[in-house]
Amino acid sequence: MAIQETGCLDYKELTGLRQVPSDVRYTHGPVAVIECVQCIPCNPCESSCSKNAIHIGDPITNLPELDEEKCIGCGICVSRCPGLAIFIVDKTYTKTTAAVSFPYEYIPLPKEGDMVRAVNRKGEYVCDGRIVKIMNPKSFDHTPVVTVEIPFEQADEIRGMERL
């Protein structure tokens, strides 16, 4: 996979793996997208999900599998993944926009309502986005989950924001 040469996944490399939702599932609401493609012994995502929607099992080097029917897109797993590799994508946010949630461990944190510069997996600026939600409870252990509203067409590409 190209990710080992560049550090960036091609979204097409992900589809077909069991960590990404089907097109149909995207039409039902927010859902987790687990961009984890290497077999490393690691399973906090599995134990973090209160809906048991993520399965790794034994051995713990197995890639996580998402049960898209059980997943409600709550975002807890986003804060628990040590690799910061899980995102929540809501392709039903509005008729023309989607919402992408990503882990953000930098300061300053943006505030709800702020406009930020949204970036793709290469860190390239794609478009401006509006921060619609910030989750930063103590249980997330200093991994805030930031949700940005962006044009619907960019939902598979936007995975972060430029630091403030």
């Binding site: 080992q4 560049t6 550090g7 996944l9 860190g123």
Partner: peptide
């Protein structure tokens, strides 16, 4: 790869 991905982002 995930460590590389977060610095590329």
């Amino acid at each position: 790869a995930v460590h590389a991905a977060k610095i590329r982002r």
